[in-house]
Design a binder for these strands. Structure first.
Lengths: 247, 247
DNA sequence: AAGTGGTCTAGACCACTGC
DNA sequence: CAGTGGTCTAGACCACTTC
């Protein structure tokens, strides 16, 4: 583990422990550098990590302040459904409703960077938390990954993990669009809610480490089953975010 | 403007222009440093900015890759409703439905860091995009900012901007919880939808530059009126994000 | 083996905050 | 005015990717 990650970890623990209470000030960078026998640059990397997690904030000239004590279980990192469920203490399961190859639509071709009409794999899954159905997932996979997806166990818990272990594929980057929609008849039946009742929709495009689009998905969560959490700031700058004026 | 912001701007323009196509590679840091007559550290700050915007990705040992060409109009930065609307080309308006002081509930006391029972200001607003109602906003302001809020024009377009201009208050940090709920009778009437139809709910706590909680809010958007957009990656590290393994 | 990004250091100057 | 964070430099070494 890198030096700055250790320092960030120490600071995070200290914040959680209450050594640096919420609303209070962090030690100066110079102070932290001496305490940890590191250069100021390394200390700045550490606090930048905490800032990215939303735990601390800063303004030029003033000491850093503590904003929160919980790492937001959120969107700074990309997690699969199974990963997220596990981290929240749930047991994830799921089953494939349908799986078939078909030519892709023009819009999908754009999102997956493939030729229009090229073959893609269309998969629908029902996913559960602690046995209770919470999510109807509709995923379109690019043709090049389709064989590996078809070899998966239909009841497989984590598609992400299985694809990593079978073909070394890493889902590295994600883009997400989140809104609310009404449940259709099929979704209502699968999720055990009334038709027209609210669902939280997450449309996603995922990309490999090399920047190659892997899948695009339309996931619909039963209302009340999940909440997305985000922390942000004005004018977010990764290396030491700065407070700006409203515009 | 800082040197690294200029370099980031140049790179962003080049990506948008198609000089560096999506899925392609960026020049090396050393190359960029020479071209811009800057040190490698400054170049790294620039590309870290683009990575935070979700435009580029990186892995140790390989060239950076281009992931997208549009800056995600999203949650890396904190925007008010009016700011967001303006950036999307809409005209925002709104009106106060009710405004009254009351003692705060225990849960609000925690979120606002005030004593339980301390007086807060409870405000409901209906907000519109191009004249069409899209959002019912229910905000609870901490007592110390209540007088400034009460002095605002009830039809005021941007509360954020007005509070900055009147008392210098900056909404610097935000925490957001997003889910879907069914419209109640009142919301349905105000937004012109049927009761029970889906609404996108955003619960928000906002904090000043100094780390002092200012307001907590429960905002409900008519389905179809807005979409939240997020870009992320595995193991987001602010200074040059790194691709990790799924876990 | 060469190229490239990830980490770290030591020092410098400036702009802003807080007293 | 002293303290502090924001920016920038020049150089170093390592781990990993690419060819």
């Amino acid at each position: 583990m890198a030096r700055y990650e250790q320092i960030a970890g120490d600071l995070r623990d200290a914040i959680v422990r209450g050594d640096y209470p919420i609303g209070g000030r962090l030690p100066s960078e110079a102070d932290l550098a001496v305490r940890h026998s590191a250069s100021r640059g390394t200390v700045r990397q550490a606090v930048a990590l905490l800032a990215a997690e939303g735990l601390v904030g800063s303004r030029q000239g003033a000491r850093r302040i503590v904003l929160g004590s919980e790492r937001s279980q959120s969107f700074t990192e990309l997690h699969s459904f199974a990963q997220w469920a596990r981290s929240m203490g749930y047991r994830a399961s799921g089953s494939v409703l349908s799986s078939r190859r078909r030519p892709c639509a023009p819009a999908e071709a754009v999102r997956l960077s493939v030729e229009p009409g090229e073959e893609v794999l269309d998969v629908r899954r029902l996913r559960r938390l602690d046995g209770e159905p919470v999510l109807v997932e509709h995923t379109v996979y690019a043709g090049w990954i389709a064989p590996a997806v078809e070899r998966l166990d239909p009841e497989c818990e984590s598609v992400t993990q299985e694809l990593y272990e079978s073909v070394g594929l890493v889902f590295a980057y994600g883009e997400h669009l989140i809104d609310a929609v009404a449940a259709g008849a099929g979704e209502a039946r699968l999720l055990g809610v009334r038709r027209g009742s609210p669902l939280l929709r997450q449309r996603r495009t995922t990309t490999s480490q090399e920047g190659r689009p892997v899948e695009c998905s339309d996931d619909r969560y039963r209302a009340g089953s999940v909440t997305f959490s985000i922390r942000n700031s004005t004018a977010a700058n990764p290396l030491g975010r700065r407070a700006g004026e409203p515009g």
